[in-house]
Amino acid sequence: MTAKRKFNIGDRVSVVDKTTLFHHRTQKFTRGQSGVVTEYRPEWVIPEDEAFDPAGNGRKEPFYIVRFKQDDLWPDYTGHHIDTLETEFSESWLEPATSKGKR
């Protein structure tokens, strides 16, 4: 059941910026951004498949929590430099960190 994970806690990763249609759960504001893996999450059917199968069948992937600096996500962030945001990705949405984000 548990395939080997591609990423480890502490790894710097980027969120893939690819075309999406109809349904997915990878927020636009994370695309092309880089952050750090902070938690592993269990393998589960990816939402892109689950959303189209009444029985909830589909491809399974491990999930990860990634932490971003708010300053990186929003050019006009009005909070403080130490503020962060965490959200979750299935493995195929992540790649080893490229540069510091594309935007």
């Binding site: 927020q27 999450r41 403080h80 503020d83 962060t84 945001l85 965490e86 959200t87 299935s90």
Partner: peptide
Amino acid sequence: VELRVHDSNQKS
């Protein structure tokens, strides 16, 4: 104080 927003976008 670090403000950490958790966007609960998947299964957690």
